[in-house]
Lab assay of single mutants.
Amino acid sequence: CHSECLGNCSQPDDPTKCVACRNFYLDGRCVETCPPPYYHFQDWRCVNFSFCQDLHHKCKNSRRQGCHQYVIHNNKCIPECPSGYTMNSSNLLCTPCLGPCPKVCHLLEGEKTIDSVTSAQELRGCTVINGSLIINIRGGNNLAAELEANLGLIEEISGYLKIRRSYALVSLSFFRKLRLIRGETLEIGNYSFYALDNQNLRQLWDWSKHNLTITQGKLFFHYNPKLCLSEIHKMEEVSGTKGRQERNDIALKTNGDQASCENELLKFSYIRTSFDKILLRWEPYWPPDFRDLLGFMLFYKEAPYQNVTEFDGQDACGSNSWTVVDIDPPLRSNDPKSQNHPGWLMRGLKPWTQYAIFVKTLVTFSDERRTYGAKSDIIYVQTDATNPSVPLDPISVSNSSSQIILKWKPPSDPNGNITHYLVFWERQAEDSELFELDYCLKGLKLPSRTWSPPFESEDSQKHNQSEYEDSAGECCSCPKTDSQILKELEESSFRKTFEDYLHNVVFVPRKT
């Protein structure tokens, strides 16, 4: 048989008469490798580009789960590009990614509803959504962080984005990388972005840091009482949809009607710091009717980097990364020049730590249904340095008659930039024990000054392991946590139920 035959053949030295091919099969003959313009397919066939392209389009058009959109890589027609490569849609070739590779997620039936953290986790790592997304989240724990972890990498949506009755959302900033909504599939009414009845939605994105392009379709905003109209108009300008909307697409009466839409800028007039305090004062603000001013709200939190936005980490279910302080308005003076500047002394802060701070007014709604208010920009203030805590785990070892090696770990709280350490030492008198000992005694162990690591005695271990207080009263049991108490109650309830079950099964009433 021919060298490319495997198993047997019907005619000697003829690659077209093989029972099976050793390498690849091409047009009725066995070959060692697939010549151009053919590609290896499933490690035994040679196919042309049209064959591989037909497989790709067949799966793409069917949208069946589990099928493969075949691509070409290293002269092979394979189910998908290997790690580190992405497909070129024009020629199906796998090309190296520039940075992290995109991950295209194809949605069944063309859309997916995100109504819980669990459903959001199914899209973790996706960068391109081939379909439409509907966000409908009523509640949950730590929602802002969970949504950002699972949806934060999405850069492109081919269909539309719909935010509907998501009472738990305060902001859409968890879509931190969303840059493009194509609108290839539109919501009824030709809408590519749809926001309806979101009672706590206050911000779409921080438009000073976020760009969003909507290729096709219109915007729809109705019944978002805490979303200011200025935020919607800003989205029109940034996304390129200005002029597409009709009169009733953006409701003037049901958007922002319960919001404090600040239209003035508060400026800080005085800032002073110490290692654990920050004193702030800002310019006074009074609405047209000074009785509408209820006070100020001061927001602050630790910020290692200057990239904080107002609604980071917030949701309507209680999660809030900001510390909020309510401040009463100052006494009002008739003389504008003698107006008191409101302020606040922030206490209990960490030394040498940068804080993000902003302040906003708290006002009631005027009778004319106009909203007044003022808010400052987010500023960054760093507390002063102070003395560091003591170095940890000092170790001293003498390696000769004239040297001592000293080692330690950095302090747990540096409280500033540590530039150097101060080492103090003092000579001590020799131990009298060394002169009084009889060095001729056998088995004498000389006193040693070398360091030995501390260890816990058996008594201390027994005390720590004991669940009861000892007789001397030195140790006591740790208080039980809520989960331990709940577990004990469940076990007790189970024992009672099981005992009742045994009584009912074992003891049967005697027939009379």
Rank of each mutant, 00 (worst) to 15 (best):
R370D: 07
I188F: 10
Y160M: 13
C126L: 00
V363T: 08
Q382W: 10
Q199T: 07
I157Y: 00
K209D: 01
N255M: 08
A259Q: 12
L151V: 14
R164T: 07
T213P: 03
S333R: 13
K103P: 08
K162M: 03
P388W: 00
F311S: 08
G313V: 11
K350T: 05
V238I: 13
E231S: 14
P394I: 08
S269L: 13
N307H: 14
S158P: 00
Q382L: 06
S319L: 11
N141T: 10
P330F: 12
T241Q: 13
I114M: 07
T215L: 05
L180T: 10
I278H: 00
T309Q: 11
S274Q: 07
Y167T: 12
T215S: 08
I163L: 03
I188N: 02
V238C: 13
C261M: 02
D384V: 13
F174I: 14
T127E: 00
E155L: 05
E310T: 03
S366L: 01
S116P: 01
W344F: 04
Y372L: 12
E155Q: 04
P394S: 11
I250E: 06
L204Q: 01
L229I: 02
R176V: 12
N200A: 04
D367A: 03
S171P: 00
Y270R: 00
R179H: 15
P225E: 04
N334T: 14
I134E: 14
Y167N: 15
E237V: 03
L178Q: 00
F268S: 01
N150V: 03
E184W: 12
E302K: 09
T383W: 00
A316T: 15
W322N: 02
D115V: 03
N334K: 14
T383Q: 00
D315T: 05
E368F: 13
L161Q: 01
Q121N: 08
S269A: 09
N198G: 02
N320C: 12
R202L: 06
D335R: 13
Y305M: 14
L133S: 00
Y160A: 05
R176D: 02
T185R: 12
E262G: 05
S333C: 08
Y167H: 03
L266N: 01
K162I: 03
L107Q: 06
L229V: 15
D206Y: 04
S274V: 03
L161Y: 01
M346R: 02
E156S: 07
S158E: 04
S239N: 05
I232F: 01
K177H: 04
I181K: 00
L133Y: 01
M297L: 14
S333G: 06
H210Y: 15
P351F: 07
L178V: 03
F174V: 10
D335K: 09
W344Y: 02
S158T: 08
T254Q: 15
R369I: 14
D292R: 09
W286H: 04
K103N: 03
S401G: 12
P284L: 14
P284F: 06
E146L: 02
S239E: 02
L362P: 05
N224H: 15
D289I: 02
L227T: 10
D257C: 09
R291V: 10
E264T: 06
I157F: 02
S208M: 07
S400H: 13
V381F: 02
L279M: 09
L279R: 12
Q354T: 07
A168Y: 10
V397R: 11
D328N: 15
H341F: 13
D315W: 02
R370N: 15
I188T: 14
E184V: 06
P329M: 04
S338F: 11
L252A: 08
F290D: 14
I135S: 00
D335A: 12
T309R: 08
L362H: 14
N198E: 00
T254Y: 08
I379E: 12
E148G: 07
H106T: 11
S333I: 04
F296A: 06
Q245G: 15
I327Y: 04
L279S: 06
F290A: 14
S260L: 09
F174A: 08
L201H: 00
K350A: 08
Q203R: 13
F174C: 11
R369A: 03
E156F: 06
D315S: 10
F358W: 11
I188S: 06
L204H: 01
N263H: 04
L178E: 00
T113D: 02
Q121L: 13
K409M: 07
N340T: 13
A144W: 01
E146D: 04
F275R: 15
A356Y: 00
F221K: 01
S401D: 05
I214T: 05
K337F: 14
P287A: 03
N136A: 06
I163S: 02
T361G: 13
D292V: 07
F268A: 01
L280V: 13
P351G: 08
S239D: 03
T371W: 11
D367R: 02
D384R: 04
N248V: 09
N150A: 09
H210K: 13
E237W: 15
G295P: 08
S132H: 09
E231F: 13
Y300V: 09
K253G: 08
L219P: 05
C261H: 04
G131E: 01
P342K: 04
M297A: 04
V170M: 04
A385R: 09
D257Q: 02
T213L: 06
W344R: 10
D276R: 01
C126G: 01
R202Y: 12
P388A: 02
W322M: 03
L293C: 07
F299Q: 07
S333T: 07
S192P: 05
V128C: 10
L169C: 15
D367L: 11
T386A: 04
P411N: 01
L196D: 02
L204N: 04
G110P: 04
N150L: 06
F296Y: 15
P304T: 12
S376F: 00
I135R: 01
N399S: 11
E264W: 12
T353A: 05
F365Q: 07
T273Y: 07
V381Q: 14
S319R: 08
G159C: 01
Y167S: 02
N224S: 02
A251G: 07
R272V: 00
I181G: 00
R179G: 11
D197T: 13
N190K: 15
A303T: 14
L294N: 10
G152V: 02
S260Y: 02
L362R: 14
E122Q: 04
N198W: 00
G256F: 07
K350H: 14
L180C: 11
L219W: 09
P342E: 06
G139P: 01
Y160R: 08
L349N: 00
A251Q: 08
E236W: 15
S321V: 10
S333Q: 14
F365P: 14
L151Y: 01
L151G: 01
N136L: 09
K209T: 14
M235R: 00
L180A: 12
T127I: 06
I134W: 08
A120V: 04
E146H: 04
E155I: 15
F221V: 09
T118D: 11
K177G: 07
L151K: 00
I271L: 06
F175K: 00
D276G: 11
R164P: 06
T185Q: 06
I135A: 03
Q199C: 10
L362C: 01
F175R: 00
N130S: 00
R244P: 12
S401K: 09
Q382R: 12
R291I: 13
F311R: 13
C317Y: 06
G139C: 14
P391M: 04
L151A: 05
N211A: 12
N307D: 04
A259M: 06
C126A: 01
P330W: 02
L349V: 05
T241V: 09
G243F: 07
V170E: 10
P342Q: 07
R369W: 13
S338Q: 07
S173E: 11
T127Q: 10
D115S: 07
E246M: 13
S338N: 07
R347N: 07
Y380R: 07
L212M: 03
S269C: 08
D206L: 06
L294R: 04
N141E: 14
S239M: 15
L133Q: 00
